[in-house]
Structure formats: C-alpha cells, structure tokens
C-alpha cells in the first residue's frame, strides 16, 4: 500500500468520523433544543402552579385576617350596643321606681290584678306586693271578691304577684317580671334608636 493510499484512507476515515461526530453533535443539539423547549412549557406550567398555589394561600390568609377582623369588630359593636340598651332599661326602671303612686299608677295596678286573676281563673287569691304599693293594692282589691293582701312584702319595683289560696298556682305580674318578658321584644326598637338594624 502506497503512502498516498494510506493518506486517502486516513482522510476518508477522518471525514467519516468527522461527519459522524458532526451528525451526533447536531442530533444532540436538536435534542437539547427539544428538551429546552419542553422544559420551557414545563417550567411555565410549574411557574403557573406556584403562582396559583400562592394566590390560593394568599386568598386563604386574606379570608382569615378579614374574617377575624370583621368578627372582632362586630363583637365589639354588639357589646357596646348591649351596654347602651342596658343603660336605657336601667334608666327606665329608675324612673318607674321613683314615679308617683298617683291615679294612673292605681289604674295600672288594677289592670295588673285583672290580668292576673283572669289567667289564674279565680279571684280567690292571695296578693303580694312591695311595701310602697301596699295601700294602692289594698284599695284595688275591693273589686276582686275573695282576694286578700298578704302581710309579707316582696322585693320588686312595683306591681303584684298572686297565688291561689291553696298555694299550688302562682302568677308573677310585677313590673320587674313584665319588663323581663318585654325586654327581648323591645331590644330591637331600642337598638334602632342607636342606628343599628334600621
């Protein structure tokens, strides 16, 4: 084999190797490009997921903070309102306590006795009242045959408590009890005076 033949063979091998290497390189390059392209979309999807998760978490935290603050503010408002409503009742009770036992009050006692005896279904009752109202009640009892005023006095703002003669039935028609029963009904109206739930 001559030198030129050897050189030609070597060149041929080198060419082939070069070609093969170049083909491999170009193949790998396009593979890399493909992978890069793929990873871009994966990266984008991952990025979107992170953003979406972050947004979800932020929404959650916002809800927690806003919800908690709303509740706290509302609760403080409720407590303030309740204390104002209670002050209204206290003032009203004070006014009733200090009111004169005049003819209007005698009419009130009369209607309280009437209501009580009607509910109990008899006028044969024992009547209890406070020391301040004893005279007013005593004079009203003449209209209720069989009724008697107890010598015991009770602690109340005004009004009467009645009991059947045998003591098995009682009815509380004191002003205190009436206000207790009315309180839930008129709280809304009082609250509306403070600008709530109008």
């Amino acid at each position: 084999m001559t030198n030129s033949t050897i050189t030609a063979t070597i060149d041929k091998i080198l060419n082939q190797t070069e070609k093969s290497i170049l083909t491999d390189i170009s193949g790998e390059l396009s593979n890399s490009h493909q992978k890069l392209d793929d990873s871009v979309s994966k990266l984008e999807a991952e990025y979107d997921k992170i953003i979406a998760d972050g947004k979800k978490e932020a929404d959650k935290i916002e809800k927690q903070i806003v919800g908690g603050a709303d509740i706290e503010a509302r609760n403080k408002q409720l407590l303030a309102l309740e204390s104002s409503v209670n002050r209204v009742f206290t003032t009203a009770l004070e006014q009733i306590t200090n009111s004169d036992r005049n003819s209007d009050y005698a009419n009130l006692i009369n209607s309280l006795l009437e209501e009580s005896t009607q509910i109990l279904g008899t006028t044969e009752v024992k009547v209890f009242t406070n020391s301040k109202d004893r005279d007013t009640v005593q004079s009203a009892l003449s209209r209720f045959p069989g009724s008697e005023l107890s010598s015991e006095t009770i602690d109340c703002i005004g009004g009467v408590k009645i009991e059947s003669k045998v003591g098995s039935m009682k009815f509380d028609n004191t002003i205190d009890a009436k206000i207790d029963r009315l309180k839930p009904l008129i709280r809304k109206e009082i609250a509306s005076k403070f600008g709530v739930n109008e």
């Binding site: 509910i119 009890a177 009436k178």
Partner: peptide, 12 residues
C-alpha cells in the same frame, strides 16, 4: 313571642 307570663304550678 308575647309579654304575657305564665302560671307557675307547684304540685309536682
């Protein structure tokens, strides 16, 4: 809801 009270019975 009413402002009328009820009778209290003690014969248990």
């Amino acid at each position: 809801m009413t402002d009328k009270g009820g009778i209290q019975y003690s014969n248990i």
